[in-house]
Design a binder for these strands. Structure first.
Length: 300
DNA sequence: CCCGGATCCTGCTGGC
DNA sequence: TGCCAGCAGGATCCGG
């Protein structure tokens, strides 16, 4: 689920429902949730208890809540399967099967972190200054971000992203275009689904060598990616209500609007040619054989 | 420094 | 029916 549009939906939900709330207590389930927090589970809980959540910020697929303790934040990463659920005081739901952490808040509500595959995590890192002096991410003007996020590039919905510099950096790389799109240190927020959708829109094959791309092609795929992310966000953003921050992009955007991803054998919406599935770096890539011709070895 | 592959988990699906 | 290989939307770490 969680690529940029899904994480932004979470961030917006958190901004609307938990800011100003104080953390009364924290319950951690399992050994993996706190594995990326330096002081371990007990320290994580200790640093959160009594703190007030003051802002919800996102860069790429990373989301964090600023704390009233200056220079600290609660960092959330959803991994492959993470969800954030905001439970109202009277929700009455049983705990989700893969509940990994619960924060009890001072109005009786709770913030649940649910994660089947346990690649997600919580941490309370120190904040470090941003390299460009701009805000750490969307949702805050503070020019600081969690230490673990310092190497993560800005994303395509961030006004501080320098598109010209990004395009130049992509063409300087010696790799394949899809790898570059997935490289969070170049541009963040794009995962396997939206990489394929962006490449389809731009009519480029993901195996195209980045250093042989024409500038107009790089611009086209970046425009396409920005459009896809914005459209997915608009679709995903419609589906959460007051007590549930929805991470389930699958129900809305996923099934109806994808042109290539997961559609092996189905007709390309542009030309009708059956979409192909290829294996790439231990995962699947979907593309149109006609609109997105595979590059010849060594050539563009 | 840059690049690519292996790796951390759990659960579901599809083929035999 | 039952079993098991294969696969799933991510980031990090390590070797070349």
């Amino acid at each position: 689920m969680p690529e940029l549009p899904e994480v932004e939906t979470v961030r917006a939900g958190l901004a609307g429902h938990v800011l100003g709330r104080r953390v009364i207590d924290v319950h951690v389930h399992g050994t993996r949730v706190a594995r990326r927090h330096d002081g371990g589970e007990a320290d994580l809980v200790g640093r959160l208890r009594g703190r007030t959540l003051t802002a919800a910020v996102r860069r790429g697929k990373f989301c964090w809540l600023l704390l009233d303790e200056p220079g600290e934040a609660l960092l959330l990463h959803l991994g492959m399967s993470g969800q954030i659920l905001v439970r109202s005081a009277d929700h009455g739901e049983p705990a989700a099967p893969h509940l990994r952490a619960r924060l009890d808040l001072d109005d009786g509500s709770a913030l649940d972190f649910v994660d089947q595959r346990t690649f997600g995590y919580l941490a309370v890192p120190d904040l470090v200054p941003t390299a460009d002096g701009g805000p750490g991410g969307l949702g805050s003007d503070v020019p600081a971000l969690p230490a673990q996020v310092a190497h993560i590039a800005r994303d395509l919905l961030d006004p501080w992203l320098d598109r010209v510099a990004l395009a130049a950096a992509i063409r300087r790389r010696r790799t394949e275009l899809k790898r570059a799109l997935l490289d969070q240190t170049l541009v963040s927020g794009i995962g396997n689904i939206y990489a394929d959708e962006s490449l389809w829109r731009a009519r480029l094959h993901g195996a195209r060598p980045t250093d042989a791309l024409r500038p107009v092609e790089v611009a086209r795929v970046l425009d396409a990616a920005a459009e896809v992310l914005a459209a997915a966000l608009a679709a995903g953003g419609t589906s959460f209500d007051a007590m549930y921050v929805d991470v389930d992009g699958a129900s809305g955007w996923f099934e109806r609007e994808l042109a290539a991803y997961g559609r092996a054998g189905l007709p390309c919406p542009r030309c009708g040619t059956p979409i192909r599935r290829e294996s790439f770096a231990n995962r699947s890539s979907y593309s149109c054989p006609r609109c997105q011709p595979r590059p010849r070895r060594g050539a563009r």
